[in-house]
Computed example of a mutant assay.
Amino acid sequence: MTTRTLHLLCSAAPPVFDIAHVIEDAQTRGWDVCLGLTPTAAHWLSDSLDGLAALTGHPVRWQYKFPGQPDVWPAADAVLFAPATFNTVNSWALGLTNNLVVGLAAEATGARKPVIAMPCTSTALATHPQFEISLNTLRTAGVEVLDGDTGYTADPADPDAPLHFPWATALNALQRVSQQA
């Protein structure tokens, strides 16, 4: 099996606490995983960052590098952005790259790399009119968005603890799109 490089990008939503298992699953599927986090997600996982870097073999990134510094990650063959919060989805769709992972996702989208996004947001935010506009913008740009019947559906009963976040669905979609590339 040929190893391909995955840029796994995550926002601060409760499923990010399972990211070590997701990395291990992706690695068993033949991916060399580089983990990028929003600043808040990095804060949430601050006690685990060294372990996650050891698990991936790459530094965990959440900040832009300085101009002239070499990139510490190999180029992505594919990008998976999950969980992608309301703020992340809207920023990405609008091209507002004020944090590293949104910038990486925007670049990969523009470069026509295989990009998958699985939003994770509350029901209230998912029904905000801008959210659907942003999801459609990303779809039009070539991003495979996994939501509703094809991915994550917000749980109005417990929006802060989505125990049903379908990580396997995201990794299966990643395999499919990477084989088509």
Rank of each mutant, 00 (worst) to 15 (best):
M1P: 04
M1T: 11
R4K: 15
L6V: 08
H7V: 03
S11C: 15
A26M: 05
T28N: 13
T28L: 12
W31A: 09
D32T: 15
V33F: 04
L35D: 07
G36M: 09
T38E: 05
P39D: 04
P39Q: 07
A42R: 02
W44I: 14
S46M: 01
S48A: 14
D50C: 03
G51R: 13
G51W: 00
L52K: 11
A53M: 09
A54C: 07
T56K: 12
P59R: 05
P59H: 10
R61T: 09
W62D: 11
Y64W: 14
K65R: 15
P67A: 15
G68F: 08
P70R: 11
D71A: 15
A76R: 05
A82D: 06
P83L: 09
A84V: 07
T85Q: 05
V89C: 11
S91R: 15
G95V: 01
G95D: 05
N98A: 08
N98R: 08
L104K: 07
A106K: 04
A106I: 01
A108T: 06
T109D: 08
T109C: 09
G110W: 06
R112Y: 02
P114L: 04
P114A: 13
I116F: 06
I116H: 07
A117L: 15
A117S: 14
M118H: 06
M118P: 05
P119Y: 03
S122H: 07
S122T: 15
L125I: 05
A126V: 00
H128T: 09
P129I: 13
P129S: 12
N136Y: 00
R139K: 15
T140V: 13
A141W: 01
E144M: 11
D149W: 02
D149T: 12
T150Y: 01
G151L: 04
G151N: 03
P156Q: 08
P156Y: 08
P156V: 10
D158H: 10
P159L: 12
P162S: 13
H164E: 14
P166G: 10
A168V: 08
A168M: 08
T169R: 02
T169H: 01
A170H: 02
A170C: 05
L171C: 04
L171I: 03
A173Q: 12
L174P: 01
Q175F: 00
V177R: 05
A181K: 11
